[in-house]
Design a protein around this nucleic acid. Structure first.
Lengths: 318, 318
DNA sequence: CTGAAAGCGCTTACAG
DNA sequence: CTGAAAGCGCTTACAG
């Protein structure tokens, strides 16, 4: 430890650097240490520190591929809540993959203070030697989730009110539980409202390009099946439908209404602007980070589900 | 080290676990060790390992706030190139901030194998005890950059060909050098083509919402100044212009042509579809990761700048 | 082919 | 109020 050039012992430096010098180290000595630290540009070695201490100040957020801008919002919420006390690092899975046990294992090695897992693959047993909080993992105990029901109900009521009687569903390929829930809630609500859901199967990765490719064939199938509205499990999927409909001259919403989930920032500038069930990503991130912080302090407050609501725009409203 | 339950010494376990047992440990013993490792779910402690070894297998990518989907592409490129040998972790700066020296310092503590810095604040001296590669940092030696000139030339030629003689520029607030370069190249090319650049100042964070807010007042100023086209330093900024123009009934491109930089996936579905200078993010990520990998092996190959080109869509073409 | 030992840079009781 | 010492879990020469 180079900074003992301050003329004191290693232990004293450690105390000062960690701000544990109150009433343990005299002011002039502490001052000398700080000066030496500054001069030498010293920065405590994280590996050694975590080793000695048993765990570090890192918080790991494991998220799926970031091509869905939704995650950027989540990350921002986490960051804002974690503050300076903890250092956030992100890990992204491979495109099209959900976070799984192996990812959590991999990051346990880093001895983080805690791990956040966004939209994990279903039915994983995500226990670790450090606190783990899951986001967007319906059915998992202790997870921070959206209450999707109100948003879906509003969407179906909206479509029913416009006279739609047969709709298509554009699902993600993601194995995350939240997608199964979105589909199930929509089907249930549709049935209750007397709306049929087309058997046409359409699934794609959550990128505009993948969605466009799938929509290229799915669009015809939907139209052949007399579908008048398509609900996509994510806005990025809906963009694909908009793109194909636009290039084929299929009027939206005249011939086909389109809606999504997420309400991404860009959904207000699409052609036409997209109706969407708003999932406030930053709120989710904040709630999850807060829950982790509470866990650190030994608490375990129940986190209520986050509300969702429908944002109506031109892609359905005409 | 728990796994010595395999009945061997700690050192032997270490050798086997790190795959350095070739010709040093007998096959049956190695086998016994592996079995024990599996049974106990043992995973080597990263902190201890990095400490003993001097550095770890982490690669840190420091990026600005991820609300610009462009970065998702960059990340994907980095990930794909790094492969399994290294573990990528991301860090994002606070919204509106560029990566700076302090961020690099912070991550040096982790003893990563290397650090990647995307669009750092200008004029930073980003040296560290580990290899650092900068992305999108024009003017920095060893940085991996776009060759923006051809894209900008094409854009200006395109606008000139359409008869535009006075254009507005919508800049980012980012202090990253790449934004200064975009502006300068555009101004130079415009002058050469006999196009005037309006003195109206418009700058915003690279989010659709921030851009919309700024565009709300800037749009009037541009129109008052007889501007017939606006070039935005990023697609997300252009989205803000499209949004305001749409809600005000200003015809795009009839009254005002709009173009951006990035060519985000969603730019093909905006209303109208956005003309943009394509900056292939994944390519940038791949090139930077490759450069870092070469550095690890002691090499220092020159990386050529990545080509850019104009993608023409309805927002300018009519 | 295998094991005992030193050391990586810290932190934290503990004794002075 | 301060310092010497043990120990965190590994890796890697080195000796057997």
């Amino acid at each position: 430890m180079v900074a003992e050039r301050a003329g004191t012992s290693i232990a004293t430096v450690s105390l000062v650097v960690n701000g544990k010098d109150r009433g343990r180290v005299s002011a002039p000595i502490a001052e000398r240490v700080r000066a030496a630290v500054d001069e030498l540009g010293y920065v405590v070695d994280h590996a050694a520190s975590s080793l000695a201490r048993g765990s570090g100040d890192l918080v790991v957020l494991i998220a799926p591929d970031l091509s869905n801008p939704f995650f950027a919002e989540v990350i921002r919420g986490v960051r804002d809540t974690l503050g300076d006390r903890y250092q956030l690092v992100l890990s992204v899975t491979e495109r099209g993959q959900q976070p799984a046990v192996a990812d959590v294992r991999r990051f346990e090695r880093l001895r983080p203070a805690g791990i956040l897992v966004e939209a994990p693959a279903d039915h994983q047993d995500l226990v670790a030697s450090v606190p783990v909080v899951q986001l967007d993992a319906p059915g998992e105990p202790g997870a921070v989730n959206y209450d999707l029901e109100p948003g879906v109900q509003q969407l179906v009521a909206h479509l029913a009110g416009l006279g739609h009687r047969r709709i298509g569903y554009f699902d993600g390929t993601s194995r995350a539980a939240t997608f199964a829930v979105r589909r199930r809630l929509l089907e249930t609500a549709a049935r209750a409202a007397g709306i049929a859901v087309s058997p046409v199967v359409a699934r794609a990765d959550l990128t505009v390009d993948a969605a466009t490719e799938v929509a290229t064939t799915a669009l015809d199938a939907w139209l052949d099946d007399d579908v008048t509205a398509v609900v996509a499990a994510a806005d990025t999927l809906a963009y694909g439908v908009l793109r194909v409909a636009g290039s084929r001259g299929v009027a939206v919403p005249g011939r086909l209404a389109v809606a999504g989930f997420d309400d991404l920032p860009s959904s207000s500038v699409t052609a036409p602007a997209l109706t969407s069930v708003a999932l406030p990503g930053a709120d989710l991130g904040r709630a999850a980070a807060l829950r982790l912080l509470t866990t650190f302090d030994g608490g375990a407050a129940e986190v209520p589900s986050l509300p969702t609501r429908l944002v109506v725009r031109a892609s359905t409203a005409g």
